[in-house]
Nucleic acid binder design. Structure first.
Lengths: 146, 146
DNA sequence: TATTGTTATACTCTATAACTATA
DNA sequence: TATAGTTATAGAGTATAACAATA
């Protein structure tokens, strides 16, 4: 049926638009702290999961080693993280978040949370729960296609 | 309540992930045709709305005039569109999609539609309709915040 | 003077390939 | 040999500012 296609396209469009406005809003907060999404992803990972080898981080946030060096250089230059060579295997360099980096994330996170909460408040509690279930289901099924 | 924040963050994450996998999937199709999202946006606009001044297109897809020149040059080089100077106001240059450009869009669109339909088929018809309503509401309310 | 579009330039982010050092 | 990370280089895409042509 043609309606199936129309419905799917409609869903595609509203999903794209909703995520675009939401992501742009949340990126504005990162801009205030001069962080791009890759840099924020690295810091957040270190903050929540502790020290990590550079290579592991690159695998998680989908950046090649050369690009990781670039990102880490920038964050290290700002004193937000440090390189620490592994004692067991000197090829491995751990990245560790510094107190300054932790302060930054401590500063950003509450604002980030309030920002997100405000954005989502256009939906009722029930609607948010419904949306969570539907989007989780959609995301998983699309991921399984590939 | 802390739960409000947790729920909002959860929604933020599932929305980001779902849209990311969906958009990456749909961009793969554009890659096959060597089009980046900006180029596709220009062609689609011309295809559906007819000839447009370069400046108007830039306003709609959020690109500055210098960047528009770059994008239009590339598409013109591939014979997908043409520049046509306005006769009433010679400062204005309309961009017109060529038959080759229309063929390309004619070729892409059915595949695009089927691709989207397949991605969305992880949700039932009712679920898709619910998701459309919720995302439309969310997108509009976030847009009105700014 | 104001507007449309182009040119020239620079910047950010990413990828790639060759390289160093360690294993 | 293989792996972790760096260096050097290149490319895409965008922004900015100065500019020419037109209004």
């Amino acid at each position: 049926m043609g309606n199936d296609i129309e419905r799917a396209l409609k869903l595609f469009i509203v999903l794209s638009r909703a995520s675009k406005v939401v992501l742009e809003e949340s990126n504005q907060l990162l801009d205030d702290y001069n962080l791009n999404p890759s840099e924020f992803a690295v810091l957040e990972l270190l903050y929540h999961k502790g020290k990590q080898p550079i290579q592991k981080i690159g695998q998680k946030i989908l950046l090649r080693s050369g690009s990781m060096t670039y990102v880490v250089d920038k964050l290290e230059g700002r004193g937000l993280l440090e390189r620490v060579t592994s004692l067991e295997d000197k090829r491995i360099i751990y990245i560790v978040i510094t107190p300054t980096g932790e302060e930054l994330i401590n500063d950003i996170f509450p604002k980030h949370e309030q920002h997100i909460k405000k954005m989502m408040s256009g939906l009722t509690v029930d609607e948010q729960n419904q949306a969570i279930d539907l989007l989780k289901k959609l995301g998983l099924s699309v991921k399984n296609l590939s």
